[in-house]
Nucleic acid binder design. Structure first.
Lengths: 221, 221
DNA sequence: CGCTTGCAGATTTTCGAATATCTTGCCATT
DNA sequence: AATGGCAAGATATTCGAAAATCTGCAAGCG
């Protein structure tokens, strides 16, 4: 049996990623308690965990807030992801076994299928595509065998996901995006370490470049 | 003004690092509340944060525990540190300015002085040396300009610090240890990226090797 | 007119008690 | 002797109210 705080944490994390609580805004305890059907204690515990995860901010005696979305912040996420995921990928390619390869191929397949039937105006399809995309990134480094690296990556992915709201405002060529991943997995399976790591680094850096080109940051923070 | 939960978190983190609460043991709420002079709410909030930080574990309806010290866990910390700190160092060496260099030299000086007057049986001196050592590692990557990388490193350093208890059971050649750091900083200041990054990687890996050689893991977990 | 001061309402933070869950040991049953 | 169930105590979790803190505004003062 899970505790109430666990449930609230889960629901709250999902809502934060989906922009239900506007970035930059306050998170009033009473409002949250009502929304998630719990008392103040479980809500506060959930927020405390999310605070340590970096998904909400906290100022003493002034309560919790949703961090604003800024260019600098996204750049930082991208840099951290680059560091973590390239190191993890390198290690996964050195020690990953057949089971890992199988998982990777499976994740790629799921991603390609959801990518093919993607329709950004259909929330359900979008959700499935996002899950598949993150799943592929998780699978890529799953072979590294490092619980900490996986946890850190997981958290960076969640933080990155908050920025997808912005990304969908501009026309993305999903074909190109899909090709990046297909090529990357191909290099990984060929155990071509330097090429794969390089592609991973480029891929992670691209999101920021795209947003910069479309001048998103004036309107959004 | 800070909140009670903040104070408890701070005190608890220090105690966990210093082994006041035995690894593998339970952390009973009432006992903690008394020890830190607070009610259950602030204690629970502090524990919730530390849980998300990875310093304590939590099982639903069974409370919090101090994670055991195991070889696998230390190996994981070392790997994660290697990934984070080498990437951060590389970037710091590319973009670090004179202010960073000055900070680095200062941190090295403090470390050398405390190292020289080190006496592992003197808690105060030991504490100072530990602080200086961690400070030097923090300074090394401070130039990277990435809040997230710095936070992740900070947390890994804290988790690593729990293992120092074990490290002090064996005779360490602090002269050699000091030399490693001096050489590393020298390479960093010379902006010799590949050499410096390689030294950093080696340095982080060594702790585990040393503990393995002395067969610590049978007695300790 | 501008600045401080203090009050009222809103909100966060903390407490103490109530509730839910787990653990242990005993007893009945097989 | 082993197993299963149950009750009692210990403990974690949650609630509802009290206490502390912040915010905005208006009165008082220079």
């Amino acid at each position: 049996m899970t505790t109430l705080a666990d449930n609230v944490e889960l629901a709250l994390r999902a809502d934060l990623v989906n922009g239900v609580h506007p970035p930059g805004g306050r998170l009033r305890m009473e409002m949250l308690a009502e929304r998630y059907g719990a008392g103040l204690s479980p809500v506060r515990e959930a927020l405390s965990r999310l605070y340590a995860e970096g998904l909400v901010s906290l100022e003493s005696n002034k309560g919790f807030r949703v961090p604003a979305l800024t260019r600098d912040d996204l750049a930082d996420i991208a840099f951290a992801r680059g560091a973590i995921e390239t190191a993890a990928l390198r290690r996964a390619m050195e020690r990953g076994d057949l089971a890992w390869e199988a998982m990777l191929v499976s994740a790629l397949h799921t991603y390609r299928q959801t990518s093919r039937s993607l329709d950004t105006s259909n929330p359900e399809r979008l959700q499935a595509w996002q899950a598949a995309h993150d799943g592929l990134h998780r699978a890529l480094i799953a072979g590294s065998g490092s619980p900490r690296i996986e946890q850190i990556q997981e958290r960076l992915l969640v933080q990155h996901a908050r920025y997808r709201q912005l990304l969908y405002r501009i026309p993305i060529d999903f074909k190109v995006h899909e090709r990046e991943h297909v090529d990357l997995v191909e290099a990984v399976l060929a155990r071509d370490v330097e090429v794969a790591v390089g592609m991973m680094a480029d891929h992670i850096a691209i999101t920021l470049d795209v947003l910069d080109q479309w001048g998103i940051w004036n309107e959004a923070g």
